[in-house]
């Protein structure tokens, strides 16, 4: 059981001869991703600093659209790239370093889906609430001032 490893990553596009080689290959990939993050973080390209779509306006469907498209409407593209790259790194750490790739489907789903579902829910709730509290503090008719 323990000796069987799946030796390909990127859906079979990159195959390795041994498990050790795969480990070094994954390290190279993770380092590459981290270097991209650091370079983007230091230089902050101007084009990625402003959102590409401004919030939709007018009625119920616009609001729904804003919620669905919120990563593009409210988030700087740079931050979106950072978060996506982080998830990519997390995937390869879990799949290749923690050997999730070699576990059965049921164990994989048990761990990943539980976590992903609960974490997405938690993030949605807390960020929504944080945005609301921001409105309470900063609306034109806010009852609370903090500018002193």
């Amino acid at each position: 059981m323990a000796h069987e490893h799946k030796l390909e990553i990127f859906r079979g596009r990159w195959k390795f001869k041994s498990n050790t080689q795969k480990i070094w290959g994954v390290l190279a990939f993770l380092t590459f991703v981290t270097v991209i993050e650091v370079v983007l973080g230091i230089y902050k390209p101007e084009i990625l600093m402003n959102t590409w779509i401004s919030p939709l306006e007018g009625g119920f469907f616009a609001t729904i659209g804003n919620i669905i498209l919120s990563p593009f409407v409210y988030m700087k593209p740079l931050n979106l790239i950072f978060i996506l790259l982080t998830i990519v790194k997390a995937y390869y750490i879990t799949w290749d370093f923690m050997h999730m790739r070699d576990e059965v489907k049921a164990l994989r789903r048990m761990v990943v889906w539980t976590g992903v579902f609960l974490i997405c829910y938690l993030i949605f709730i807390l960020l929504q609430e944080g945005g609301y509290v921001f409105e309470v503090y900063n609306a034109d008719d806010a009852l609370i001032t903090r500018d002193f």
């Binding site: 938690l122 807390l126 960020l127 944080g130 945005g131 509290v133 921001f134």
Partner: peptide, 10 residues
């Protein structure tokens, strides 16, 4: 997520 909450608040 709590960090995100506080950050969105400020």
């Amino acid at each position: 997520a709590a960090y995100g909450f506080s950050r969105f608040k400020f």
